[in-house]
Design a binder for these strands. Structure first.
Lengths: 110, 110
DNA sequence: ATTATTTATCGTATTATTGCAATAAAATAA
DNA sequence: TTATTTTATTGCAATAATACGATAAATAAT
Protein backbone atom coordinates (compact mmCIF):
# COMPACT_ATOMS: atom_id res chain seq x y z
CA UNK A 1 0.00 0.00 0.00
CA UNK A 2 1.13 3.56 -0.67
CA UNK A 3 2.79 2.62 -3.96
CA UNK A 4 1.29 2.96 -7.44
CA UNK A 5 0.60 -0.49 -8.93
CA UNK A 6 2.19 0.19 -12.32
CA UNK A 7 2.29 -3.51 -13.18
CA UNK A 8 -1.46 -3.73 -13.69
CA UNK A 9 -1.48 -0.98 -16.32
CA UNK A 10 -0.29 -1.04 -19.91
CA UNK A 11 2.76 0.74 -21.34
CA UNK A 12 0.75 3.62 -22.77
CA UNK A 13 -1.02 4.31 -19.51
CA UNK A 14 2.21 4.25 -17.52
CA UNK A 15 4.01 6.49 -20.00
CA UNK A 16 1.25 9.08 -20.02
CA UNK A 17 1.15 9.18 -16.24
CA UNK A 18 4.94 9.50 -16.03
CA UNK A 19 5.02 12.45 -18.42
CA UNK A 20 2.04 14.02 -16.66
CA UNK A 21 3.93 13.72 -13.38
CA UNK A 22 6.71 15.85 -14.87
CA UNK A 23 4.15 18.57 -15.62
CA UNK A 24 2.35 18.13 -12.30
CA UNK A 25 4.31 20.82 -10.47
CA UNK A 26 4.12 24.54 -11.36
CA UNK A 27 7.88 24.96 -10.85
CA UNK A 28 8.61 22.38 -13.53
CA UNK A 29 6.06 23.99 -15.84
CA UNK A 30 7.76 27.35 -15.23
CA UNK A 31 11.21 25.88 -15.88
CA UNK A 32 10.07 24.39 -19.18
CA UNK A 33 8.37 27.62 -20.25
CA UNK A 34 11.52 29.57 -19.45
CA UNK A 35 13.66 27.12 -21.41
CA UNK A 36 11.33 27.47 -24.40
CA UNK A 37 11.43 31.24 -24.09
CA UNK A 38 15.22 31.58 -23.86
CA UNK A 39 16.14 28.32 -25.64
CA UNK A 40 18.93 27.90 -23.12
CA UNK A 41 19.22 28.87 -19.48
CA UNK A 42 21.64 28.41 -16.63
CA UNK A 43 20.48 27.11 -13.29
CA UNK A 44 21.13 30.35 -11.38
CA UNK A 45 18.90 32.32 -13.71
CA UNK A 46 16.06 29.87 -13.12
CA UNK A 47 16.56 30.27 -9.37
CA UNK A 48 16.22 34.05 -9.76
CA UNK A 49 13.29 33.87 -12.18
CA UNK A 50 11.29 31.36 -10.12
CA UNK A 51 11.26 32.13 -6.40
CA UNK A 52 12.42 28.81 -4.94
CA UNK A 53 15.66 27.93 -3.16
CA UNK A 54 18.57 26.73 -5.27
CA UNK A 55 18.49 23.12 -4.03
CA UNK A 56 14.79 22.94 -4.83
CA UNK A 57 15.29 24.13 -8.40
CA UNK A 58 18.22 21.73 -8.80
CA UNK A 59 15.96 18.89 -7.70
CA UNK A 60 13.24 19.80 -10.20
CA UNK A 61 15.87 20.08 -12.94
CA UNK A 62 17.15 16.65 -12.03
CA UNK A 63 13.68 15.12 -12.35
CA UNK A 64 13.16 16.68 -15.78
CA UNK A 65 16.62 15.53 -16.83
CA UNK A 66 16.03 11.98 -15.59
CA UNK A 67 12.88 11.84 -17.69
CA UNK A 68 14.88 13.04 -20.68
CA UNK A 69 12.85 16.18 -21.41
CA UNK A 70 15.83 18.45 -20.79
CA UNK A 71 19.56 18.14 -21.24
CA UNK A 72 22.32 19.87 -19.28
CA UNK A 73 25.93 20.79 -19.84
CA UNK A 74 28.48 22.21 -17.45
CA UNK A 75 30.03 25.51 -18.49
CA UNK A 76 32.70 26.53 -16.04
CA UNK A 77 31.07 26.80 -12.64
CA UNK A 78 27.56 27.11 -14.03
CA UNK A 79 25.41 24.53 -15.74
CA UNK A 80 23.26 25.21 -18.75
CA UNK A 81 19.99 23.49 -19.53
CA UNK A 82 17.84 23.23 -22.61
CA UNK A 83 14.91 21.25 -24.03
CA UNK A 84 15.62 17.96 -25.82
CA UNK A 85 13.56 18.60 -28.95
CA UNK A 86 13.43 14.97 -30.01
CA UNK A 87 12.11 13.77 -26.66
CA UNK A 88 9.71 16.69 -26.43
CA UNK A 89 8.20 15.83 -29.82
CA UNK A 90 7.70 12.20 -28.82
CA UNK A 91 6.06 13.13 -25.53
CA UNK A 92 3.93 15.72 -27.25
CA UNK A 93 2.60 13.17 -29.73
CA UNK A 94 1.85 10.63 -27.00
CA UNK A 95 -0.02 13.26 -25.03
CA UNK A 96 -1.89 14.70 -27.98
CA UNK A 97 -3.13 11.22 -28.93
CA UNK A 98 -4.48 10.91 -25.42
CA UNK A 99 -6.07 14.36 -25.46
CA UNK A 100 -7.61 13.84 -28.90
CA UNK A 101 -9.84 11.02 -27.73
CA UNK A 102 -13.44 11.84 -28.44
CA UNK A 103 -16.80 10.80 -27.03
CA UNK A 104 -20.10 10.05 -28.70
CA UNK A 105 -22.31 12.75 -27.15
CA UNK A 106 -25.44 10.73 -27.99
CA UNK A 107 -24.50 7.99 -25.54
CA UNK A 108 -24.34 9.64 -22.16
CA UNK A 109 -25.71 9.00 -18.70
CA UNK A 110 -25.09 12.50 -17.37
CA UNK B 1 7.69 22.86 3.80
CA UNK B 2 6.29 19.87 2.00
CA UNK B 3 3.63 21.99 0.33
CA UNK B 4 3.74 23.32 -3.22
CA UNK B 5 4.15 27.13 -3.23
CA UNK B 6 1.36 27.83 -5.72
CA UNK B 7 1.31 31.52 -4.81
CA UNK B 8 4.59 32.26 -6.55
CA UNK B 9 3.38 30.89 -9.90
CA UNK B 10 0.94 32.37 -12.38
CA UNK B 11 -2.57 31.14 -13.15
CA UNK B 12 -1.52 29.32 -16.32
CA UNK B 13 1.29 27.45 -14.60
CA UNK B 14 -0.95 26.39 -11.72
CA UNK B 15 -3.73 25.28 -14.04
CA UNK B 16 -1.43 23.18 -16.20
CA UNK B 17 0.07 21.48 -13.16
CA UNK B 18 -3.39 20.79 -11.71
CA UNK B 19 -4.61 19.15 -14.90
CA UNK B 20 -1.35 17.23 -15.23
CA UNK B 21 -1.85 15.94 -11.69
CA UNK B 22 -5.15 14.42 -12.79
CA UNK B 23 -3.30 12.51 -15.52
CA UNK B 24 -0.36 11.64 -13.25
CA UNK B 25 -1.70 8.27 -12.15
CA UNK B 26 -2.18 5.31 -14.53
CA UNK B 27 -5.48 4.39 -12.88
CA UNK B 28 -6.95 7.78 -13.74
CA UNK B 29 -5.58 7.52 -17.29
CA UNK B 30 -7.21 4.09 -17.56
CA UNK B 31 -10.52 5.38 -16.19
CA UNK B 32 -10.58 8.23 -18.71
CA UNK B 33 -9.67 5.92 -21.61
CA UNK B 34 -12.45 3.53 -20.60
CA UNK B 35 -14.96 6.38 -20.39
CA UNK B 36 -13.96 7.55 -23.87
CA UNK B 37 -14.24 4.01 -25.19
CA UNK B 38 -17.67 3.25 -23.72
CA UNK B 39 -18.91 6.86 -23.45
CA UNK B 40 -20.51 5.91 -20.18
CA UNK B 41 -19.49 3.45 -17.48
CA UNK B 42 -20.64 2.43 -14.03
CA UNK B 43 -18.19 2.29 -11.16
CA UNK B 44 -18.33 -1.49 -10.70
CA UNK B 45 -17.32 -2.08 -14.32
CA UNK B 46 -14.28 0.15 -13.83
CA UNK B 47 -13.36 -1.84 -10.73
CA UNK B 48 -13.49 -5.06 -12.77
CA UNK B 49 -11.69 -3.60 -15.79
CA UNK B 50 -8.87 -2.02 -13.75
CA UNK B 51 -7.50 -4.28 -11.02
CA UNK B 52 -7.77 -2.00 -8.00
CA UNK B 53 -10.02 -2.26 -4.96
CA UNK B 54 -13.40 -0.58 -5.11
CA UNK B 55 -12.59 2.15 -2.55
CA UNK B 56 -9.45 3.02 -4.53
CA UNK B 57 -11.37 3.41 -7.79
CA UNK B 58 -14.03 5.44 -6.00
CA UNK B 59 -11.31 7.74 -4.70
CA UNK B 60 -9.78 8.26 -8.16
CA UNK B 61 -13.26 8.91 -9.59
CA UNK B 62 -13.84 11.51 -6.90
CA UNK B 63 -10.63 13.34 -7.80
CA UNK B 64 -11.53 13.43 -11.48
CA UNK B 65 -15.04 14.59 -10.57
CA UNK B 66 -13.75 17.32 -8.25
CA UNK B 67 -11.59 18.63 -11.10
CA UNK B 68 -14.65 18.66 -13.35
CA UNK B 69 -13.31 16.30 -16.03
CA UNK B 70 -16.03 13.72 -15.37
CA UNK B 71 -19.64 13.85 -14.22
CA UNK B 72 -21.57 11.20 -12.33
CA UNK B 73 -25.20 10.24 -11.84
CA UNK B 74 -26.75 7.68 -9.53
CA UNK B 75 -28.84 4.98 -11.21
CA UNK B 76 -30.44 2.75 -8.63
CA UNK B 77 -27.67 1.25 -6.55
CA UNK B 78 -24.97 1.90 -9.13
CA UNK B 79 -23.45 5.18 -10.24
CA UNK B 80 -22.65 6.05 -13.79
CA UNK B 81 -19.80 8.27 -14.93
CA UNK B 82 -18.93 10.00 -18.16
CA UNK B 83 -16.61 12.67 -19.57
CA UNK B 84 -17.64 16.32 -19.38
CA UNK B 85 -16.97 17.26 -23.00
CA UNK B 86 -16.96 21.00 -22.37
CA UNK B 87 -14.38 20.78 -19.59
CA UNK B 88 -12.30 18.27 -21.54
CA UNK B 89 -12.11 20.62 -24.53
CA UNK B 90 -10.98 23.51 -22.34
CA UNK B 91 -8.30 21.43 -20.64
CA UNK B 92 -7.19 20.01 -23.96
CA UNK B 93 -6.68 23.48 -25.41
CA UNK B 94 -4.73 24.69 -22.38
CA UNK B 95 -2.49 21.65 -22.55
CA UNK B 96 -1.99 21.75 -26.31
CA UNK B 97 -0.91 25.39 -26.08
CA UNK B 98 1.69 24.32 -23.54
CA UNK B 99 2.84 21.36 -25.66
CA UNK B 100 3.01 23.43 -28.84
CA UNK B 101 5.77 25.66 -27.50
CA UNK B 102 8.74 25.52 -29.79
CA UNK B 103 12.46 26.14 -29.46
CA UNK B 104 14.96 27.79 -31.77
CA UNK B 105 17.33 24.87 -32.48
CA UNK B 106 20.08 27.31 -33.48
CA UNK B 107 20.41 28.65 -29.95
CA UNK B 108 21.35 25.70 -27.78
CA UNK B 109 23.97 24.89 -25.18
CA UNK B 110 23.53 21.12 -25.35
C1' DA C 1 -39.10 -7.48 6.60
C1' DT C 2 -34.87 -9.39 5.29
C1' DT C 3 -31.17 -10.04 2.32
C1' DA C 4 -28.26 -8.81 -1.44
C1' DT C 5 -26.02 -5.37 -4.35
C1' DT C 6 -23.54 -1.32 -5.14
C1' DT C 7 -21.04 2.71 -4.04
C1' DA C 8 -19.17 6.27 -0.86
C1' DT C 9 -16.75 7.40 3.18
C1' DC C 10 -13.68 6.75 7.17
C1' DG C 11 -9.59 5.35 9.21
C1' DT C 12 -5.05 4.04 8.73
C1' DA C 13 -0.55 2.29 6.97
C1' DT C 14 2.82 3.08 3.61
C1' DT C 15 5.24 5.52 0.23
C1' DA C 16 6.11 9.76 -2.50
C1' DT C 17 6.76 14.63 -2.97
C1' DT C 18 8.13 19.20 -1.70
C1' DG C 19 11.23 22.40 0.31
C1' DC C 20 15.30 24.06 2.34
C1' DA C 21 19.58 24.42 5.42
C1' DA C 22 24.01 22.62 5.44
C1' DT C 23 27.61 21.04 2.92
C1' DA C 24 30.41 19.05 -0.74
C1' DA C 25 32.51 19.59 -5.29
C1' DA C 26 34.55 21.90 -8.94
C1' DA C 27 35.93 25.70 -11.63
C1' DT C 28 37.26 30.64 -11.57
C1' DA C 29 39.28 34.92 -9.69
C1' DA C 30 42.26 37.39 -6.62
C1' DT D 1 47.34 29.49 -2.57
C1' DT D 2 43.20 31.34 -1.01
C1' DA D 3 38.85 33.20 -1.64
C1' DT D 4 34.67 33.33 -4.60
C1' DT D 5 31.08 31.55 -7.44
C1' DT D 6 27.99 28.15 -8.86
C1' DT D 7 25.74 23.86 -8.71
C1' DA D 8 24.81 19.17 -6.88
C1' DT D 9 24.03 16.32 -3.03
C1' DT D 10 22.70 14.99 1.64
C1' DG D 11 19.68 14.92 5.38
C1' DC D 12 15.61 16.02 7.37
C1' DA D 13 10.86 17.80 8.34
C1' DA D 14 6.32 18.41 6.67
C1' DT D 15 2.71 17.50 3.59
C1' DA D 16 0.49 14.83 -0.20
C1' DA D 17 -0.82 10.66 -2.50
C1' DT D 18 -1.86 5.71 -2.84
C1' DA D 19 -4.19 1.68 -1.40
C1' DC D 20 -7.41 -0.99 1.05
C1' DG D 21 -10.23 -3.07 5.05
C1' DA D 22 -14.22 -1.90 7.52
C1' DT D 23 -18.38 0.17 7.42
C1' DA D 24 -22.27 3.15 6.28
C1' DA D 25 -26.02 4.31 3.15
C1' DA D 26 -29.28 3.56 -0.21
C1' DT D 27 -31.69 0.88 -3.51
C1' DA D 28 -33.02 -3.98 -5.45
C1' DA D 29 -34.57 -8.44 -4.90
C1' DT D 30 -36.58 -12.29 -2.28
Amino acid sequence: MGTTKSEIFNENQNQISLIAKAFAHPARVAILQQLFKLNTCICGDLVNEIGLAQPTISQHLKELKNLGIIKGTIEGTSSCYCIDDKVWKEMKQLFINFLNQDTNPKIKCC
